[in-house]
């Protein structure tokens, strides 16, 4: 981050990337999430933690426009610096945003990958979607990204079906980051991976987030993931945000009884 846009960058970091106000989602009379408001700043990683069924994923889906909330608004600062209300954008604009400026990492890599095309094509798809028509360049970029996520470049023509769980997840991350998005949503990125693979993946994600200056919203039930990845965290219970603060503060000095319970129920080996 050396040259010309230093001032612009300065200005950019003074304003939030995402403004969420009063987002609620009801499934009939049942609450998905209720009255969630926060701001996300450039380069910041926010973790949303809570037990199963607490509304984490509902909230994430609302934020990423995969789901329409019942009320509330989410404003996103576009690359031109203007805020746009996501729910008032046309579907074409929203889909374009999702495949260029955003990434979405699914818990199950099969949901986010095309399992029947090669790893190279998986990484290259977004490039081709935004109009890259040079095979050599696409392949070079794919190679570069596979290296960055520690997948051997000799695997570029293999289908993700032939990959292990950890490799698939890393491939999914590469596929999302190839268009240098500014905001990445992650839904339990380490769920279903064994601990050593988890550790490597977390290390990788942390490195990438730092290098690229990404903002990320990570949903997880694993407090260790939140501790390692995030700057700030929100604790959810029954669809409500019950505690919100810097990650270290929340984990070391939980105020709400429920958060205290969560923190104290971490397994110690």
């Amino acid at each position: 981050m050396s040259n010309p846009d230093n001032q612009e960058l300065q200005a950019a970091t003074d304003t939030p990337l995402l403004k969420v106000s009063g987002v609620s989602k009801f499934y009939g009379s049942r609450i998905g999430c209720k009255d969630v408001s926060f701001e996300l700043w450039p380069g910041e990683v926010l973790a949303i933690v809570g037990e199963s069924g607490s509304g984490k994923t509902t909230l994430l889906n609302c934020l990423s426009t995969r789901l329409m909330p019942t009320t509330g608004s989410v404003e996103y600062r576009m690359r031109d610096g203007n805020f746009r209300d996501l729910y008032h954008m046309s579907e074409a604009e929203r889909r374009f945003l999702m495949r260029t400026d955003w990434g979405f990492v699914h818990q199950n890599p099969a949901d986010g990958l095309r399992m029947t095309v090669s790893a190279g094509a998986n990484v290259g798809e977004r490039l081709m979607a935004v109009g890259d028509r040079h095979y050599g360049n696409i392949r070079a970029t794919a190679n570069d990204w596979l290296t960055r996520v520690e997948i051997g470049t000799d695997r570029i023509d293999d289908q993700p079906r032939a990959f292990s769980g950890g490799m698939r997840q890393r491939l999914q991350i590469a596929r999302n980051l190839v268009t240098s998005p500014r905001l990445v949503f992650m839904d339990e990125p380490t769920g279903g991976l064994d601990v050593s693979v988890q550790a490597r993946l977390l290390d990788l994600v942390r490195g990438l987030v730092n290098d690229l200056g990404l903002s990320a919203i990570v949903v997880t039930h694993d407090l260790a993931v939140a501790r390692l990845l995030s700057h700030r965290m929100m604790v959810m219970k029954d669809g409500h945000v019950i505690e919100h603060g810097l990650t270290d503060r929340v984990l070391d000095d939980p105020r709400e009884p429920y958060t205290q319970l969560l923190v104290s129920s971490i397994l110690q080996v």
């Binding site: 495949r99 190279g120 290259g124 798809e125 028509r133 696409i138």
Partner: peptide
């Protein structure tokens, strides 16, 4: 959104 069509052609070349 025709990026997918090129994914097919990419696979062919690969």
């Amino acid at each position: 959104e025709y990026g997918l069509m090129h994914v097919k052609l990419y696979e062919d070349i690969a």
